[in-house]
């Protein structure tokens, strides 16, 4: 496969909540790698090893045609600000599975911890529920990452009753809880 052929299998831009989620492209990889290797982001990941440009390229080659995941770059006012994804946790594809895992981070430091983080997450969750028809969204958060745990709770996620990992907190979001959370933020969708 030539470099020009390397594109995510999903093509649709998602425009909602003042942000646009665009399918990851080859020319986004270096920015993502810089964010992913930054201490602020990598410290919240399970795998904290430095990622080389070559590894990043190989990763993209491996996932861009994988129907079990969708990878997006988050844009605010035409600027890349972060990344998010939807992944099937089973053998089923993202579109086939009733539930998918969500992943999310804001790379641009000035936006971390702001309401923009909620806008981006709400856009992803809304797409998963309303366009893809998912019945549940799942998230795994390091139990030391209290900001992310609070963030997910504000989005309507609830910690699962049964926790299988000592290090990670499994959380689930259902459509009604998402709609309730989205309604709280809707007043602030402007421009």
């Amino acid at each position: 496969m030539s470099e020009t052929d390397l594109q995510m299998w999903h093509k649709e831009d998602i425009s909602a909540f003042n942000v646009v989620l665009k399918p990851l492209q080859l020319n986004d990889l270096e920015q993502l790698r810089l964010w992913r290797n930054s201490p602020e982001i990598s410290s919240q990941m399970l795998d904290q090893r430095e990622i080389s440009a070559k590894q990043q390229q190989r990763w993209f080659e491996g996932i861009c045609t994988d129907p079990r995941q969708m990878q997006f770059v988050i844009y605010y006012k035409n600027q890349q600000v972060g990344a998010c994804n939807l992944k099937s946790s089973t053998a089923l594809t993202v579109t086939e599975s009733d539930s998918v895992e969500t992943g999310f981070y804001l790379g641009e430091a000035k936006y971390r911890g702001t309401i923009l983080a909620f806008f981006a997450a709400l856009a992803l969750n809304q797409y998963a529920f309303e366009q893809l028809g998912k019945k549940m969204l799942l998230a795994q958060v390091k139990n030391t990452n209290s900001a992310a745990l609070r963030f997910n709770e504000q989005l309507g996620y609830q910690p699962d009753a049964l926790q299988l990992s000592a290090e990670m907190v499994a959380m689930t979001l259902v459509p009604q809880a998402h709609r309730d959370a989205a309604a709280k933020f809707a007043t602030f969708i402007r421009n």
């Binding site: 911890g113 309401i115 909620f118 609070r150 504000q154 709280k184 007043t187 602030f188």
Partner: peptide, 18 residues
């Protein structure tokens, strides 16, 4: 500052803006 006290979280931030 935002998030410097527990009372100024994202929910309170929205109430504050309103």
């Amino acid at each position: 500052a935002y998030n410097s006290i527990k009372e100024w979280d994202s929910t309170a931030h929205m109430l504050l803006i309103a």
